[in-house]
Nucleic acid binder design. Structure first.
Lengths: 125, 125
DNA sequence: CTCCTTGCGCAACCTTTGGTTGCGTACAAC
DNA sequence: GTTGTACGCAACCAAAGGTTGCGCAAGGAG
C-alpha cells in the first residue's frame, strides 16, 4: 500500500467529478435537469425511483462539485445544470476513454509486431 | 417514486459496467493492468493505496462484469484485461458524454434562437 | 524430505455512502 | 387563520469499500 503514481493521460485527475457522475441516479438526474426546464427535489423524485430526500442528497453531491446550482424561490428550490462544469466532466470522460482506447490499440500493435518478429527469426516455430 | 424512463442515447444502458469503472481504484487497476504485463492481487496492491484484500475484492467486481479475467498458475493468480469488454465500456463512456454534449449545444442554440426572436419582434425590450 | 517463505482465500469487523421514515417549519393559497 | 405543500434536519438501515487476522497450499532453500 503505497505508490499510487499519476500515470500521464490517464486517471485520477478529478476523482470528485468522476464519482459524482459515476452514480446512475445522479446521471439520470443530470439528464432530467437537461431535458426538462431544470427542476426541484420534489419534481425530480417523481421521475426517479427514489425518495425526495435521496434526491436532495444527490443534489447536494452534484452541487458540491459544481455540476448544478440552486436558486431558492419562495418555498421552492430550483436546480439547474452548470453547463461549463458538465462540459468539463464530459471532457474527462472522453479523456479516460481515449487513453484506454489508445492502450488497447498499442497493445494490439505490439503483439502483432512481436508475432512478425518471431515469424522472421524462427519461421517454423 | 416511479417513472424512471430510458431516455434515448442517454444513461442507464449498462449501469453495471459504469459502476465498475466508476470507482477510482478500479480505474487505476485497469490502467496498471494495461500498462504492465497484467498482474496479481499482490503486485497491484503494491502500486495502489489499498491492501491486497481490497484489490482482490475490486478484481472480483471487475471480473463479474467481464472486464478482467484470471488465470491461476501455481500459487499465483494472474489477472489481465478483457480488451473487448473494455472497448465496450469506452464506447459507453463516450456515448453518454456525447449525449450530454449534444444537449448542451442544443440548449445553447435554442437560447440564442429565442434571443434572436425576441430581438426581432421586440427590438427595444 | 523438511522447513520456511509467500501468495491467496475466508471471515470478522469498521466506516462511508445511498436510501428510508418521521417530524418540524416556512411559505402560499384559500 | 387554517390548510396544504415543499423543504430541511435527524435517526436509523443496508450495502459497499476497506482493514486486520488467520489458516492453507505451493515453491524454493537447507
Amino acid at each position: 500500500m503505497n505508490a499510487a503514481r499519476n500515470a500521464p493521460g490517464s486517471v485520477a485527475v478529478d476523482d470528485e467529478l468522476w464519482s459524482a457522475v459515476g452514480d446512475p441516479i445522479r446521471r439520470r438526474m443530470l439528464d432530467l435537469l437537461l431535458t426538462g426546464d431544470g427542476g426541484t427535489a420534489t419534481t425530480l423524485s417523481e421521475q426517479l425511483p427514489v425518495t425526495r430526500q435521496a434526491v436532495a442528497k444527490h443534489l447536494g453531491v452534484l452541487g458540491r462539485v459544481g455540476l448544478v446550482h440552486d436558486t431558492p424561490s419562495g418555498r421552492e428550490r430550483r436546480y439547474e445544470v452548470d453547463e461549463a462544469q458538465l462540459a468539463r466532466a464530459v471532457a474527462q470522460l472522453s479523456s479516460v476513454g481515449a487513453a484506454w482506447d489508445a492502450r488497447l490499440h498499442r497493445i494490439k500493435r505490439i503483439a502483432e509486431a512481436i508475432q512478425h518478429d518471431r515469424d522472421e527469426h524462427d519461421p517454423d516455430d
